[in-house]
Simulated scan of single mutants.
Amino acid sequence: MRPTMKDVASAAGVALKTVSRVVNGEPGVHPGTAERVRAAIDLLGYSRNESASVLRRGRTSTVGLVIEDVADPFYAALSRAVEDVTTGYGCLLLSGSSSEEPARERELVRTFCARRVDGLIVVPAGDDHSYLRPELDAGTPAVFVDRPPGPGVDVDTVLSDNAGGAGLAARHLVARGHSRIAFLGDEPSIFTASRRLHGYRAALGHLYDERLVAMRAPSLEGVRADLDRLLALDRPPTALFTGNGRLTVTALRVLGGRPAPALVGFDDFELADLLVPGVTVVAQDPAGMGRVAAELLFRRLHGDTGPSEHPLLPVRLIPRGSGELPP
């Protein structure tokens, strides 16, 4: 038979309320008494009934996280940071990948809510989040990260300075003498891709040439076709700015064996510093984004009802050689 809290109280020679305080981490128990209770818990193999606890507190001690792809190093770092914060608050993290599909995002969020998660952290795939309104109205807090929610949903949102980072990359290349700077970006409908295009265009000013821009989902075939077109122009680019880590790695594969243009990529990636030359990048802080988002969520769970917050995390340029090549 599974041991009960009453069994622990009997074994430790204390009142039932004392065991409850120790199990729930409440103050007011003498250290020696608490140690005796924990020894009885270990001896009996007692574990508290979380289902009963949920019924008493109205909480499940779980958080739902929706990201784009757990295999992507950026989202893996973000997810781990969220998990570390969640665990620190004594909660369990449930997570799933949307694969950049709005329907999958909605399905995951609804599944988490059906399991009565206490709160949600969402990297959105779509731009319609009206489906979340019933959950928000019912008091389930949500924090969006990396991209904002769609119109009509005002919740805490943690973003990187995408436009500022793209401007850093473009100005860095211009300062090295480049005036023909191409941009390979992701789908223009994606918030981060559009913001990076905006920052690149604003930084170039009169040097901007729309013929040097290509935006589509990253693929080997697509990047090869775009680079073939760009390098065949009458005035081809002497520098290339890639809008995310997958595009940077794919462009490096395509350019292998060719005379390479100067290159700056948005997002750092593993082994970027070991290539020859090392790849100059604009680095985000995905772990920082995850920590800030999770801490915001737990502030809401602990009663903060202030206006929604929209922190913008800084990025930094890391010169390694590829972005410093002359025209």
Rank of each mutant, 00 (worst) to 15 (best):
2 R>H: 07
4 T>P: 05
6 K>W: 01
8 V>T: 10
10 S>Q: 14
19 V>F: 10
19 V>Y: 08
24 N>C: 09
25 G>R: 08
29 V>N: 11
29 V>E: 07
34 A>Q: 13
35 E>P: 02
37 V>Q: 10
46 Y>D: 01
49 N>H: 13
50 E>K: 01
50 E>A: 11
51 S>T: 06
56 R>W: 00
56 R>I: 00
60 T>D: 00
66 V>R: 07
68 E>M: 07
70 V>D: 02
70 V>C: 02
70 V>M: 10
71 A>G: 03
71 A>R: 15
74 F>H: 15
75 Y>T: 06
82 V>H: 07
82 V>E: 05
82 V>N: 07
84 D>W: 00
86 T>R: 04
87 T>F: 03
90 G>R: 09
91 C>V: 00
91 C>L: 00
93 L>H: 02
95 S>I: 01
98 S>F: 04
100 E>W: 05
101 E>M: 05
102 P>Y: 03
103 A>L: 09
104 R>D: 11
104 R>L: 13
106 R>Y: 02
108 L>W: 08
112 F>W: 12
113 C>M: 15
117 V>I: 11
119 G>D: 12
121 I>G: 10
124 P>G: 06
126 G>K: 09
130 S>R: 15
131 Y>D: 12
136 L>A: 11
138 A>Y: 06
144 F>N: 13
149 P>A: 12
155 V>C: 15
156 D>N: 13
156 D>M: 04
167 G>N: 08
168 L>Y: 02
170 A>I: 04
171 R>H: 04
186 D>F: 00
192 T>W: 02
193 A>S: 15
194 S>P: 00
198 H>K: 11
199 G>W: 05
202 A>L: 13
205 G>A: 05
206 H>L: 04
206 H>Y: 01
209 D>M: 03
211 R>H: 04
211 R>S: 11
213 V>Y: 03
213 V>N: 06
216 R>Q: 13
216 R>D: 14
220 L>E: 14
220 L>Q: 12
221 E>T: 15
222 G>K: 01
224 R>N: 06
224 R>H: 08
227 L>M: 05
237 P>S: 08
237 P>K: 06
241 F>L: 15
242 T>S: 13
261 P>V: 06
263 L>Q: 06
264 V>M: 03
266 F>T: 04
267 D>Q: 09
270 E>S: 13
274 L>W: 01
274 L>R: 09
277 P>G: 12
288 G>D: 03
289 M>Y: 00
291 R>W: 00
292 V>K: 04
294 A>R: 11
294 A>P: 03
295 E>Q: 14
295 E>R: 15
295 E>Y: 06
296 L>T: 09
298 F>M: 03
299 R>F: 01
300 R>N: 05
301 L>H: 08
302 H>G: 15
309 E>A: 14
312 L>K: 05
315 V>T: 14
315 V>C: 03
315 V>F: 03
320 R>H: 11
322 S>C: 09
323 G>L: 06
323 G>E: 06
324 E>I: 03
325 L>I: 05
